[in-house]
Design a protein around this nucleic acid. Structure first.
Length: 429
DNA sequence: TCTGGGGTCCTAGGACCC
DNA sequence: TCTGGGGTCCTAGGACCC
């Protein structure tokens, strides 16, 4: 008999905010947010800011008055820093349980039933992880433990919101009435996989709390909502339906898009931006050793300015044969752009999506293809990627991506890349 | 002046096959 | 009056996640 599964979900509190605070201690207890790309929305909020009622994704410009009043500080996103800190947390967790799924930049699921006895149970294990991550990285985390992923998520929610748990909640350590009590106290919207729409439809069925949903017969849920919700109900009942995805499957689509720092009118600038995006997408594509079968290009004006003329266009360009050569991808982008571009609009955003992906090693080559050229092209791309990896992004790039790039997104207040860039290391005095 | 950037999975419906 | 019973593949759209 094998031990029944136990999952832990470990996530970093206010991740981006916490990363900034590690290297700038003066920010502790100061209300602060980290902004999305282009300094648009607040995507991470400190507890002080959450307490002021600022919602996730609130546009920064609409918070200016509040910010002035309360001294809220805003930082531009510093993904280089966050990615590195994230990796450090994962390395520590993998030491505790090698069976680990990196679910997002600040969350990991762990299979822990094998290691639980070594640490004296879930609560003890969770506390140890918390302490070590705090000591080694400076980041605060919460730990939720339960027999399914959905329950581990729920436990994590309790660990975060309910002070009694002190950051670690193991559902197995609670009595049945206690578990039911917590479920009855928690809104169904908090369940992993239940969004606003579903929550509203559930309310019509008089299902309001986690406990209500748990007690609904799975078959009834399936009728109304489909198989996804049925699985969620089973998971809430302790029947594990979702396994750990410990090997990351290759992406099925790769996207690269950005809003512009200022309105863009010319086809030349759009082409530069799109070439830069497709180059980034191509890099990701080669990194996972895939080929793209088609390139999807889109351009759009600013939907938040309904008074201005609006234009939204996209086009899918199939490639003659699957490829991961940035030059060919860039050509396809140009083909699409020439077709969809209309003069006289103020463009706000442009992007590229690579689709119909396949494995590079399974490529079917043409019978009469020139193998010498093909090998040379592949080597060229490899060299390009190596140079950019070792000497920094954009050390070498397609001329089509332009040189001035003054359409680039805003990033007015980015902190130094403390951990990944020699010139920006923090110094101790 | 000013509103992110990625992804996944499922379902329904249409076209087509025998 | 009456018109089978399976399938597959593709696409668009919706819902969700962080």
């Amino acid at each position: 008999m094998s031990t029944p599964a136990q999952f832990a979900l470990v996530d970093v509190n206010n991740f981006y905010v916490s990363c900034e605070r590690v290297f700038q201690p003066r920010l502790h207890n100061i209300p602060m947010v980290v902004l999305s790309n282009n300094d648009g929305c607040a995507v991470a909020r400190s507890n002080e800011v959450k307490a002021l009622g600022v919602k996730m994704g609130a546009p920064w410009f609409s918070l200016k008055d509040l910010a002035l009043l309360h001294g809220i500080e805003a930082f531009s996103s510093n993904y280089t820093l966050y990615a590195d800190m994230s990796q450090r947390v994962v390395d520590i967790l993998r030491d505790y349980a090698p069976d680990l799924e990196v679910y997002s930049i600040d969350e990991s699921f762990l299979r822990i039933e094998q290691v639980l006895p070594l640490h004296g149970g879930g609560v003890a294990l969770g506390r140890q992880m918390r302490q070590r991550i705090r000591l080694w990285t400076g980041l605060p985390v919460c730990v939720g433990i339960g027999p399914t992923k959905t329950l581990a998520k729920f436990a994590n929610h309790l660990a975060k919101k309910q002070a009694v748990f002190e950051g670690v909640c193991d559902l197995n350590a609670l009595s049945r009435p206690e578990r039911q009590d917590w479920m009855a106290q928690t809104e169904v919207r908090e369940v992993w996989g239940v969004g606003n729409r579903t929550a509203r439809r559930l309310a019509e069925m008089d299902i309001h709390t986690v406990l209500d949903l748990r007690n609904t017969p799975p078959a009834r849920v399936r009728e109304r909502f489909g198989v996804v919700m049925e699985r969620i109900v089973c998971e809430l009942r302790g029947i594990s339906c979702l396994g750990l995805e410990d090997i990351t499957p290759p992406k099925q689509q790769i996207m690269a898009s950005r809003s512009f720092g200022r309105p863009v009118h010319s086809v030349v600038e759009l082409r530069e931006a799109l070439s830069a995006h497709v180059a980034r997408a191509g890099e990701k594509l080669r990194a996972q050793q895939s080929l793209a079968g088609a390139v999807h290009v889109f351009i759009r004006t600013n939907p938040f300015k309904p008074d201005e003329p609006q234009y939204n266009a996209s086009l899918l360009v199939p490639l003659p044969e699957p490829s991961n050569d940035s030059r060919l991808l860039s050509d396809a982008v140009w083909v699409a752009l020439r077709k969809i571009f209309r003069a006289g609009f103020a463009y706000k955003k442009a992007g590229v999506m690579l689709t119909a992906l396949s494995e590079a090693r399974r490529q079917q080559h043409g019978l009469f293809e020139d193998t010498v050229t093909r090998t040379r092209d592949a080597t060229l791309m490899k060299t390009l990627d190596h140079l950019n990896l070792h000497f920094g992004r954009d050390t070498i790039h397609l001329a089509a991506t332009g040189t001035s790039r003054d359409w680039r997104m805003r990033s007015a207040n980015r902190s130094p890349r403390f951990t990944t860039c020699w010139d920006e290391l923090p110094s101790a005095h």
